[in-house]
Design a protein around this nucleic acid. Structure first.
Lengths: 104, 104
DNA sequence: TTCATATGCAACTATGCGGTTGCATAACGC
DNA sequence: GCGTTATGCAACCGCATAGTTGCATATGAA
């Protein structure tokens, strides 16, 4: 539940593209998700390990392949973190508005 | 509106701490927000420039100080990006469930 | 068994990033 | 004007990260 680590994992276009694929598509293996990303399989594997480290993705070994699946729980936590920031910001603006309108 | 760049800016504990302060607090200058973060003013300035580059923060020059303010629009976009991923993921799970339940 | 496939591990390179220090500069108060 | 304060700019250091290649290994198929 380290928000910074989650955002850091999200902060790379290749990894975001992987997540988009996972959200859309069907089953993916490390090899199949590597295709079309413009990097080597090993490069893709490193990114997947970063995503797995942030619990944004799960890697499950199945025979000679490794299945990749999105883990939506961390996504939800990241979204909640931002939502809380926004709420506090909104409350601050409202408080400021009231302060001004009270003529004080 | 580069989602990866926004998340990258969010992916650092010091920068998240800055945003939390900005969401809570009153007016901040570069100097005042540097205090209590355990780094030099120049270090804080670099982080603020990263946040400004991602449009998460605005830096406004006022006399000899520079005012720092949260810009909630980029936060909202980042949250929307995650929400969209989650929605697509949910739809996929629902489709998969129906597929299984149709016995096909 | 034998071959092809999917993956894991290690080493290596280049670049980016967090952080610092030193110096220059501009604005406020006396 | 003069000292103080808040900031900007540049150079530098160390480490993490994105990316690669080469090789080893385990599994599925013929």
């Amino acid at each position: 539940m380290d928000a910074a680590a989650t955002f850091k994992a999200l902060g790379d276009p290749t990894r975001l593209a992987m997540l988009q694929r996972l959200a859309d598509g069907a089953a993916y293996t490390i090899g199949s998700i590597s295709n079309g990303l413009g990097l080597s399989r090993q490069g893709a594997r490193k990114h997947l390990q970063v995503l797995a480290g942030a619990k944004l993705v799960t890697l499950r070994n199945n025979g000679r392949e490794t299945e990749v699946a999105l883990d939506a729980a961390s996504l939800a936590r990241a979204r909640a973190f931002i939502a809380e920031l926004e709420q506090r910001w909104d409350r601050r603006l409202i408080a400021l508005k009231e302060f001004v309108e009270d003529g004080n």
